[in-house]
Nucleic acid binder design. Structure first.
Lengths: 148, 148
DNA sequence: CTTCCTGCAAAAGTTTTGCATTAAC
DNA sequence: GTTAATGCAAAACTTTTGCAGGAAG
């Protein structure tokens, strides 16, 4: 499990950015801080609302850059807003339980044995259709306690 | 495994629609036929292009109705088009390998033992955060042979 | 000092909606 | 005959982009 210490996270993100010739600007630092403290995936709007010094377009642009360098992951459910969270490599590999009514998401993990079986089955299936697999997602879809 | 016979599928869809006071109109019959023969998830555009007697808005509207009654499932990957396929209850439960470059999707299945373990882990996790689970999705994300 | 980043407003792209007409039952 | 479905065009909504000014290194 990777560290969730703010300084360590900053260093990891800075390194990912610099490797690809990007800067770790103020806006990007703020995005990382917001996502880290939230502890769950946030929409662009939720991020903008959490700190109104952030411009909508800059948030979109920077989340895209952060996704490109592998620092954040985009999660889509419906055709509503995308949600963003810090990437697995920075936090730890996990899965989501998604409320199909309000879009709220919480995290959970699978036993590592099960995780390994999943990966193996997936790789076998992928090789049959000649796909290269980068990652997987296993999500539970349902209704949160507030929406029931 | 449910039947993939056209007549049976029609009857199932008709029944799902009528239960909720909807009609099995010509357009809806065509959508079901297109999805059935495609054998893989299609975008709205792909459906419209496959039969130009279909209006864009009617396809969207009817896919939404069919999703509401549980006859089709919507799949989203990026922020591009949604894709639709006949629901698990009509075909059979399965998973997807998705090309993150072109959006193409192929199906695969997991051993039922693994499927059961997954469901159990998911239900345990869900009850802790008081979510009600309706379904799950397990997708492999990667690159298809054409995009490599 | 050069290059990248920001913020605003405008554009793009997918999906939804209003309304008059047509089809389903 | 009544109610729901269709098709067109216009609107809505999320996300992207152009451009002039500002920050990072």
């Amino acid at each position: 499990m990777a560290s969730l210490n703010k300084a360590d996270v900053d260093e990891q993100v800075a390194s990912l950015l610099r490797e690809k010739g990007h800067r770790y600007s103020n806006t990007r630092r703020m995005l990382v801080r917001v996502l880290l403290t939230a502890g769950k995936p946030l929409t662009n709007n939720q991020i903008v609302e959490s700190d109104n010094s952030l411009a909508q377009s800059s948030v979109y642009r920077n989340l895209n850059v952060l996704e490109e360098v592998g620092a954040v992951t985009r999660i889509v459910t419906n055709n509503e807003f995308s949600r963003y969270e810090l990437a697995d490599e920075i936090t730890e590999h996990h899965h989501h339980i998604i409320c199909t009514s309000c879009g709220d998401i919480t995290d959970f993990s699978l036993p590592s044995k099960l995780e390994k079986s999943l990966n193996q089955s997936l790789r076998t299936a992928a090789s049959k259709v000649r796909f290269t697999i980068d990652q997987h997602r296993f999500d539970g879809l349902g209704t949160c306690v507030a929406c029931q």
